Simulated assay, not measured.
Amino acid sequence: MNINIDSYYYMRDNIFDKVQKASNVEKLAMAVLMACLTGILAQIIIPLPWTPVPITGQTFGVLVSGLFLGKRFGVLSQVIYIFAGILGVSWFAEMSSGLSVFLGSTCGYFIGFILAAALIGYISEKYTESRNFKKMFGLMLVANFACIYIPGLIGLSIWLYFTQGAFPDIITLIMMGLAPFIIGDLFKVGIAAGISKVALPKE
């Protein structure tokens, strides 16, 4: 049993070390792959009739991008995802793309993706003790609900002002841009934090 555990720790540490010591070209390739993962997860979608913001799986890609690639390349993966989508790669929700989609109701959430990847990447790189389940779960809660939803709700409010002529009240805004996503996001945060515990070295 100890041999198996030792082998697991060795393999985990070895893989992580190779990722950390990869060349910038290799890390760029990994950032592109993480952008692709975010785009694929964006197609897991549940439209909601009372809000232009759908439930998607893409925030899971955002969380793990910072976790595995660190601050610099985790952020780069989300920048690639956003700019490639603006330039025509159809990997925003519902296989959409273009500047008009980016500047739509979910613009603030896109900006939040970059902030969330930066926070998770910075903390997981600098503080190895943060990679256990409990601490990473707390960190990802902050990244998900503060870094993503605060700019997301601000952007949604501005979009509603320009499209409907008035800012929504706070209850309406929360019901459109936050409340429907809480349960699903807790689930995604839990899985991502579990991956951190299993896949990342703690020292």
Rank of each mutant, 00 (worst) to 15 (best):
N4I: 14
N4P: 09
R12L: 10
S23G: 08
A29F: 14
M30C: 07
A31L: 14
A31T: 15
V32G: 06
L33Y: 09
I40M: 05
I46L: 06
L48H: 03
P52Y: 10
I55C: 05
T56Y: 04
T56L: 02
G57E: 14
F60E: 11
F60R: 08
L69N: 07
F73P: 10
V75K: 09
S77G: 06
Q78H: 06
I82C: 02
I82T: 03
A84T: 12
I86Y: 07
V89R: 01
S90L: 10
W91Y: 05
F92W: 13
A93E: 04
E94T: 09
S96P: 15
L103S: 03
L103R: 01
G104E: 03
C107V: 06
G108M: 05
Y109L: 05
F110W: 08
F113I: 10
I114M: 14
A117I: 10
Y122T: 15
K126H: 13
K126M: 13
E129H: 07
A143H: 11
F145A: 11
I148S: 00
I148G: 00
P151L: 08
G165E: 15
G165S: 11
A166D: 09
D169A: 04
M175H: 15
M176K: 08
M176L: 09
A179M: 14
I183N: 08
L186F: 08
F187C: 05
K188G: 01
K188D: 02
V189Y: 15
S196C: 04
S196H: 02
K197S: 10
K197Y: 14
A199Y: 02
